[in-house]
Simulated scan of single mutants.
Amino acid sequence: MSAHNVVTVEVGLGERSYDILIGPGLIERAGEEIAKRLPKARVAIVTDEHLAAAGHLDRLRMALDKTSTASTTTVLAPGEKTKNFDALQQVVDDVIAARLERGDAVIALGGGVIGDLTGFAAGIVRRGMNFIQMPTSLLSQVDSSVGGKTGINSPRGKNLIGVFHQPKVVLADTGALDTLSPREFRAGYAEVAKYGLIDRPDFFAWLENNWQEVFSGGPARAEAIAQSCRAKADVVARDEFETGDRALLNLGHTFGHALEGATGYDSTRLVHGEGVAIGMALAYRFSARLNLASPDDASRVEAHLKAVGLPWRLSDIPGGLPDAETLLNFITQDKKVSRGALTFILTRGIGQSFIAKDVPASEVLAFLDLSLKR
């Protein structure tokens, strides 16, 4: 595969800047791309059973063999429930047992779960090792692999334990997306739509017109991924540690994480991107309820999510939900809470999101109560 098929997006963080490479065949090119940046490094690959079965692991090992890059492998169970201390300990133990040094690297070959967990392990073992992201799902290519947020879940909430640890490079092989189920692809698309809804109204309008080609794998797919990565890279460069603007990337996530918690992280009922989709629809509808945005904007968001086959209201989650009080409890556990006041990403219209602090819990409770009846 020639390099001209690859789009490069830079994440500008001074001395810790790195490239996101987006295109087909990047798993096959991994050995040379890693050797370019980390000559003579040995690597530990972390992946899950699904990706190993799909052949991605064998392709990566062959690519590393071509550049004589020594590697070890840890294969974990797939799914959100793997983001726990037991799996973290296994990865850390395997890296130490392989006698990898600080200058060596840990590779995350997988979706958001593998990326978050592996990045956290790389951030803490030997007080910080090199980390390489090789995202294989749409969600991880456009969101979780970019920006250095890593972590695992606590029984008390999602992503509550972790560190910021930036990768050395992100290799986003668009060919890997062909092995995703339609449901996983749709779930990842929610994060693509999110960038338009945050501050790129033209991009959202483009998605409304081109989403079918994004799904079918034409040039629009690579364009959508590159646009999403540029949007995220811009925000991360401005606010690496989420003290300000970066919180905008949580559009839909405060509601979404609460829904994931309320369904017990049961991926048969709800996966992360689906939670985000419903969360974004709720954020737009809540903004309309507070007279911040037009109900027409909320309807437009709901119509697009519905058109692509994503859930957009609470009743779309199979198996029923707890009451509004219980959902509010999950929201107050979220990291977006500061000194007890609720912080939400709300909106004044398509592409006009903003950080709203001190949102009254009573308003959220009343809104959730109403939304449960839709």
Rank of each mutant, 00 (worst) to 15 (best):
D65Q: 09
H165F: 08
S228L: 07
E274G: 02
G151L: 09
A70W: 03
L251C: 01
M62T: 15
G151C: 08
I198D: 08
G55V: 04
F215V: 09
A193L: 12
V214C: 10
D143R: 00
S338W: 14
T47D: 06
R42W: 00
A44D: 12
N159C: 12
T118C: 05
D199R: 14
L139A: 11
R16Y: 05
G157P: 14
D19E: 15
M134H: 03
P135M: 04
Q90M: 14
D334S: 07
E302H: 05
E302C: 12
R200K: 10
P167L: 06
H257N: 06
G217Y: 05
G261S: 15
V11K: 02
F131I: 05
A233L: 06
G115T: 02
V9A: 11
H257K: 07
D297V: 08
L370C: 11
G79D: 01
T82H: 07
P311K: 10
I331G: 10
V236Y: 05
K66H: 12
S294T: 05
M134N: 03
P167Y: 02
D94Q: 15
F367Q: 00
T72R: 13
K232T: 01
G79Q: 01
V92N: 08
F354K: 03
L282G: 03
E33R: 13
A35F: 07
I355Y: 00
F344R: 06
V91N: 00
A98G: 03
Y265R: 08
A122T: 06
R59M: 14
A226F: 14
E49Y: 12
R156N: 14
M134K: 02
F131S: 02
R126A: 13
A77Y: 09
T136W: 00
T263C: 14
S294Y: 00
S68P: 07
G217E: 04
L109N: 04
D173L: 02
H304Q: 14
W206G: 02
L270E: 04
R156K: 15
W206L: 03
V6G: 05
Q90L: 14
A247Q: 13
I152Q: 06
K66F: 10
N5Y: 01
N291M: 13
D199P: 06
N84L: 06
A341E: 09
P201A: 12
Y189L: 13
V271N: 11
P39R: 10
A30T: 14
E101F: 11
P360H: 05
H304F: 15
A303P: 00
L328V: 11
V163G: 12
G157I: 15
I225F: 06
A105K: 06
F354R: 04
K306Q: 14
S2C: 07
D202Y: 10
M280R: 09
T174F: 13
R285D: 15
P24S: 12
L292D: 01
A98V: 03
I317K: 01
F215C: 10
T69G: 12
L370E: 14
K66N: 11
G128H: 01
E49Q: 15
